[in-house]
């Protein structure tokens, strides 16, 4: 065997060993969330306690509760931005007739996703979740996909929305706000959410794209029955 081959195989073996150790460490010492419920994302009904919490943000509430839509979203995800207008049409058309709940699920690959979720949550502390939810999506192209912090942009957004800025800044940096976002994310992971937007229709993951037409067809079918 040549020296070249020996060294190559040697490095390969060392790297394989290191990778094996890392995998073993993650399996043994990881918090095991990856193995928790509902990883088979078939049309099983999601455990209700993970889907909607007392403090979850509702964009619409129905008295009868026949239809409940829960969307796990990332304000920076362009897919969520694309679904946003569809959701807004559904919200306008079925206001008060369906439950529409949104949950935070910021993606680790999006630089400002977690911050945006905290911005929405800080606005929610002043009762202005809906305003911020709408504005974050409407302005997504102006701040999304950035590689630097967009905090200044968000502060400006909050100011224009007429929020109490002192309280907003305090809430934005409060550990409780970050914790609230992480709790939503944790529920999503427990439900087997792998990406955004993930929409649950009456407890089951939506089996079609969350477009206006698809959602309308499903909602009408249930409301008519």
């Amino acid at each position: 065997m040549t020296t070249n081959l020996k060294i190559s195989l040697g490095i390969g073996a060392v790297v394989a060993l290191i990778l094996a150790l890392i995998v073993a460490a993650v399996v043994m010492f990881g918090d095991g969330r990856a193995q928790t419920p509902a990883t088979d994302s078939t049309a099983r009904t999601a455990p209700a306690q993970f889907l909607v919490r007392e403090d979850s943000h509702r964009l619409s509430t129905a008295a009868d509760g026949k239809v409940t839509l829960v969307e796990f979203l990332d304000f920076e995800c362009e897919g969520c931005g694309a679904v946003f207008p569809h959701m807004e049409r559904i919200r306008a058309e079925y206001a008060g007739r369906i439950n529409l709940v949104v949950r935070y699920f910021p993606m680790p690959g999006h630089r400002n996703a977690d911050l945006a979720a905290r911005v929405a949550e800080a606005a929610a502390r002043q009762g202005e979740f809906e305003v911020m939810y709408t504005r974050l999506f409407e302005t997504q192209t102006q701040w999304g996909e950035a590689s630097e912090s967009k905090e200044a942009f968000f502060l400006d957004l909050a100011e224009r929305a007429g929020l109490d800025m002192a309280a907003f800044k305090r809430d934005l940096d409060a550990p409780a706000t970050a914790e609230r976002v992480r709790k939503d994310q944790g529920d999503g992971l427990a439900l087997g959410v792998q990406g955004t937007p993930t929409v649950f229709f009456n407890g089951s993951p939506l089996d079609v794209e969350p477009s206006y037409d698809n959602l309308k067809a499903k909602i009408d079918a249930v409301l008519r029955s």
């Binding site: 995800c77 362009e78 897919g79 993606m107 792998q194």
Partner: peptide, 9 residues
């Protein structure tokens, strides 16, 4: 086609 964002890169 509506894009999605996934945890899996």
């Amino acid at each position: 086609y509506l894009p999605t964002c996934n945890l899996n890169p």
